Structure formats: C-alpha cells, structure tokens
Simulated assay, not measured.
Amino acid sequence: MGNDFQKQVQAFSKILLSFLVIILVLFGGLFYWANHKSKPNIVEIPLEESTEDYDKIENGIHVATGFIADTGMQVTIQNCTACHSAKLVTQNRMSREGWKATIKWMQETQNLWDLGANEELILTYLAKNYAPTDKGRRQNLEDIEWYELK
C-alpha cells in the first residue's frame, strides 16, 4: 500500500506541476500582450504661428487682455498680469480707494512688489475705467407695438 501511495503522490505532483506551468505560461502571455500591444499612431500637429499682434486694439479694447484702451493701460497690464489673469482685474469694479486697498493687500500678503511711480498711473487708470457702476432698473421700453398671444 505504501508503494501505491507514493505513485499517487508522484502523479498528483506531476499534475500540479503541469497546472502551475500552464498558469505561468498564461500569465506570462497576458503580461507580454498587455505591454507589447501596438501603440496608437500619434501624429503631432504643429501649432500655427499667430499673426495676431499682441498690442492690437479693437473697439477701444486691448484684444489680448480685454483691458480698456486708455492712458496707463500698458503699465497696468505689465504689473497686474505678471501674477494673475487680466480677467481678475476687468471683472472687478472699485473706487480709487478700493483699488489702492487691494494693491496694498497684495503687497502685504501676495508679494506684490513696490509699484513706485507707476502706482499713481495704475490707480488713475483703474479708477477711471473700472470704477463702480450704478446698477438699477432698466429703462422703460418705448415705441413698442404690443400684441396678444392667443
């Protein structure tokens, strides 16, 4: 009986070894396939050179930044857009004091440099072109031919 048991253990060992070899071959094949699939054909499309002039003004607006064209615009662009988007300026409306307080806050907390003589020019530009606007009810509609929906 001991001899039969050894034969059974040997047969089982051969089956187990065969099974492990098959598993290793399958996993090796999957690994190879996953890492050697054909790569997608990526073609780099060159960007077209912009013929747009950076300093172009259309309808009184600096095209590249959206700033209102006026005295002090270039200095304001140079000092403001070095750190943040022009949109951050153009979407705000403040009095001269509000702009001055904002500049002071940026100098104290955001590492904005001393603007020197340019500060007066920037404040004048911002206070003139980005001052608070009165918002209220729209004008009444006049000379309208009304009709009834049926």
Rank of each mutant, 00 (worst) to 15 (best):
K14E: 10
E145S: 14
P46L: 12
K128T: 11
Y125I: 01
K135P: 03
I103R: 14
E49A: 07
I57Q: 01
C83L: 11
K14D: 08
Q78I: 15
S13Q: 09
E52C: 01
Q6K: 15
I103S: 04
Y147D: 03
Y32T: 15
A34Y: 14
L24G: 10
S50G: 03
E97R: 09
I68E: 03
Y147S: 06
S95Y: 13
D143E: 10
D70H: 07
L123Y: 07
I23P: 00
R93N: 09
D55L: 06
G29L: 07
F5S: 11
Q78V: 09
K104P: 00
N92S: 04
I57L: 09
L149M: 11
V75N: 06
D134K: 09
K37S: 05
G60K: 08
E44W: 13
S38D: 05
Q8C: 08
K39H: 13
F5I: 08
N111H: 10
A127N: 01
W33S: 05
V89F: 02
Q8I: 10
K128I: 02
F31L: 08
N35H: 12
Y130K: 02
F31M: 12
E145L: 07
Q110H: 08
E142F: 04
L26Y: 07
Q139G: 11
I77S: 00
I23G: 04
V25I: 14
V89H: 01
K135W: 04
L112F: 06
N118W: 03
T51I: 02
G98E: 03
H84Y: 13
L30M: 05
I42N: 06
E48I: 05
S50V: 11
Y147M: 03
T133P: 03
L141G: 05
D70N: 09
R138I: 08
G116Q: 14
R138T: 12
C83H: 11
N129S: 07
M1F: 13
M73N: 07
N3A: 12
G28Y: 09
Q8W: 12
K7T: 15
E142P: 00
T71N: 10
R137Q: 05
N79A: 09
K37H: 10
A86N: 03
F12Q: 14
E120K: 13
V43Q: 15
A82P: 00
V43R: 13
Q6I: 12
I61K: 02
S85W: 03
W33H: 08
I122F: 04
D53E: 07
A127M: 04
Y147R: 09
T133E: 14
I77D: 01
L123V: 00
M106F: 12
H84W: 08
V21I: 12
M106Q: 07
I15G: 15
S95P: 05
I57Y: 00
I42D: 02
E52L: 08
Y130T: 00
I23Q: 07
K150I: 13
V63F: 06
I103L: 08
Q74H: 13
T65F: 02
E119V: 01
P46M: 12
Q107R: 14
A127H: 02
M106E: 00
L123T: 01
M94C: 04
E142N: 07
D114M: 05
I61P: 01
K128C: 02
L121K: 12
T102S: 08
H62L: 06
E148W: 04
V75Y: 03
G72T: 03
L88M: 10
T102K: 12
L47W: 15
N118L: 00
S18N: 13
A117W: 02
A101G: 05
G2L: 11
I68V: 13
L24D: 11
K104G: 01
